[in-house]
Design a binder for these strands. Structure first.
Length: 589
RNA sequence: GGGGACGUAGUUCAGUUGGUUAGAACGCUGCCCUGUCACGGCAGAGGCCGCGGGUUCGAGUCCCGUCGUCCCCGCCA
């Protein structure tokens, strides 16, 4: 192959096939860089030694597909190119065949600056000829294989589940597939194989996994595509620790493919601690946590600052940012949409004039260096003093501080350098977040929703609070977080039908409603369901992080745009009236 | 659904306060060139300034609308 030839291959006769990356025509001497999946090699065509060949080569253009027969020759010392792996050799062509010509492409795979995404996506086949894309897609294949091997070696079976399945009203919007046989009825593409994998546990396949496509009709982000791939797994008779071990094992195998040697076990943190220390349920561990600095202020201090002494006062520390100008501080306030009742103090100098003792204590408490940026986040006195109101106000302080921490670390990443790559496992800070709340209160609808999904088991000791105090029920649910990105989410499931019913009731569903939505599943639970649990991880996100990419589109061969359009095939499209009629569907103008 | 950025040659971009024939680089075409590797030199072609309306003597430039791409919020059990 083109990219694999080395000085040790000198003297061999080789047949190479590939694309013309670049042609350098010096008149009677032509150089062609031939490119295939493995890289580039320089072909030499000399008019003097082969005029007919030279004539053919002079008509060759970028992205023509060539077959070359030639001799591998070690280059003279003066002509070695140290910038390419094959730079010590070149191919003296004896024969050249144009297998296909090419229109001038809208952009060249050999270009240093890559074109805009619209053009890249429309001409994805050319974009994917670029070495970066080739490397990402190769990495994806290797990582998938490593995960399959690892899970298989632990006794997991890869089992397929349907893509055409049943719509469930919970969760994300479904992509629907109309049924021709039953006009007006629809299949749904799975948001995840959740219920199928639980059924497989009931069926006795005690260790299941699948690298599987999932579909969610929600708005996109750089790290969210409407169809994406999960590494999905489930085991019977699990413990949380057992699930963590299996995931850590396959992540070690996956990262090894990218030359990173991870060191499990990964640290763990309870959800409540994550909120208190990082103001978010997916903390980025590469920077210092938020510090509680309530104690450095007296009650008089806080009253003078119009801050509520009963609410948390926390400090966000961003190392090595130095002093900020007035303008920068104003700009920074724009970074985070301020929540009502949350106050931000970002001018320590001014604070120091009025409260010198507090600021001295503050610096000591957060162990701040002189050039560290400190921002204080606290709460204005709340009007309502009930327990729930105070809890919400406190959470608003934590999450605002968390958002501030993220925005500032992003903005000043050049200064603190915490995101700089070292090429070691230290670049990848994994974290298990555990003990998520079972329910979240939905202010709009005035009811409780499942924080993870409604098949998640609560902590056994919280069973009693399911109806009396849903907000206090902890779930056996866990997330795996990498550098502030949620990679995966899982739980120990409910295997008792009576508990499952209670959960549906707590979610405000009557028995009839539960039966109409999940009847098949509730029935299955009654036939000897083993305890079981599992997790699903976003494969695309894993590859994205390993590839050092900023967008999922860099690691998905044929991705969709932010408006969920495939620019290459131009999908979605309207369909013919005949098709619609056959499906019994009428489209409103 | 909301906010922001962008849209000018095949590509990446510049285009002043609204004022003559809209520029550059790369790419492309032709010619020259035997050691280049982002080859070099000379010459040339290439534009619905996203689209539609408006203001104006005059619009790439100002206003309104619309479409597209990207980022964020909402949303994503």
């Amino acid at each position: 192959m083109c990219g694999t030839l080395r000085a040790s291959d000198a003297g061999k006769t080789v047949t190479l096939m590939g694309w013309v990356n670049r042609r350098r025509d010096l008149g009677n001497l032509i150089f062609v860089d031939l490119r295939d999946r493995t890289g580039l090699v320089q072909i030499v065509i000399d008019k003097e030694s082969n005029p007919a060949l030279h004539e053919k080569a002079s008509r060759v253009r970028s992205e023509y597909v060539l077959a070359i027969v030639g001799n591998v020759k070690k280059r003279d010392d003066s002509t070695i190119n140290k910038n390419v792996p094959t730079g010590e050799v070149e191919i003296i062509a004896h024969e050249l065949r144009v297998l296909n010509d090419s229109k001038t492409p809208p952009f060249a795979p050999s270009d240093q600056a890559i074109g805009n995404e619209e053009v890249r996506l429309k001409y994805r086949y050319i974009d994917m000829r670029r070495p970066e894309m080739q490397a990402n897609i190769e990495l994806r294949s290797k990582v998938s294989l490593a995960i399959r091997k690892e899970l298989s070696s632990h006794g997991f079976l890869e089992i397929e589940t349907p893509f055409m399945t049943r719509s469930t009203p919970e969760g994300a919007r479904d992509y629907l597939v109309p049924s021709r046989v039953y006009p007006g009825s629809f299949y749904a593409l799975p948001q995840s194989p959740q219920l199928f994998k639980q059924i497989l546990m009931i069926s006795g396949f005690d260790k299941y996994f699948q690298i599987v496509r999932c579909f969610r009709d929600e708005d996109l982000r750089a790290d969210r595509q409407p169809e994406f791939t999960q590494v999905d797994l489930e085991t019977s008779f699990p413990t949380q620790d057992r699930v963590f071990e299996v995931v850590e094992a396959f992540l070690v195998a996956a990262f090894r493919e990218a030359g990173i040697e991870l060191k499990p076990p990964f640290p763990r943190m309870k959800y409540d601690d994550a909120i208190r220390k990082y103001g978010i349920d997916k903390p980025d561990m590469r920077l210092p946590e938020i510090t509680d600095v309530r104690e450095v202020f007296t009650e008089e201090n806080l009253n003078a600052l119009s801050l509520d002494p009963l609410l948390p006062v926390v400090a966000v520390r961003i190392p090595k940012v130095g002093e900020l100008s007035r303008k920068e501080r104003d700009d920074n306030k724009q970074l985070v949409a301020s929540k009502p009742g949350v106050k931000v103090i970002d001018d320590l100098k001014r604070l120091e004039k009025s409260f010198p003792d507090a600021v001295t204590k503050l610096r000591a408490t957060v162990e701040a260096d002189a050039d560290d940026l400190l921002v204080i986040v606290a709460g204005a006195p709340t009007e309502e003093r009930t327990g729930l109101a105070m809890r919400k106000a406190a959470e608003a302080v934590y999450t605002s501080a968390g958002a501030m921490r993220l925005a500032l670390t992003q903005k000043y990443k050049d200064k603190h350098g915490a995101f700089n790559k070292t090429g070691t496992a230290n670049d990848y800070r994994f974290l298990w977040v555990t003990d998520f709340p079972m329910f979240e209160y939905d202010d709009k609808d005035g009811r409780w929703n499942a924080a993870h999904h409604p098949f998640t088991s609560p902590h056994e000791e919280d069973f009693g609070k399911l109806l009396s105090d849903p907000g206090a029920v902890r779930a056996l649910a866990y997330d795996i977080v990498l550098n502030g990105t949620e990679l995966g989410s899982g739980s120990i499931r409910i295997h008792r039908q009576d508990i499952q019913k209670q959960i549906f009731n707590a979610l405000g569903m009557t028995d009839e409603e539960a039966r109409s939505r999940f009847g098949f599943f509730l029935e299955a639970l009654e036939y000897g369901t083993p305890p079981h649990g599992g997790i699903a991880l976003g494969l695309d996100r894993i590859i994205m992080i390993l590839a050092g990419a900023d967008s999922l589109r860099e690691v998905i061969p044929f991705p969709k745009t932010a408006k969920a359009v495939d620019l290459m095939v131009d999908a979605p499209t309207p369909v013919s009236a005949t098709q619609l009629k056959e499906l019994g569907i009428a489209v409103k103008g």
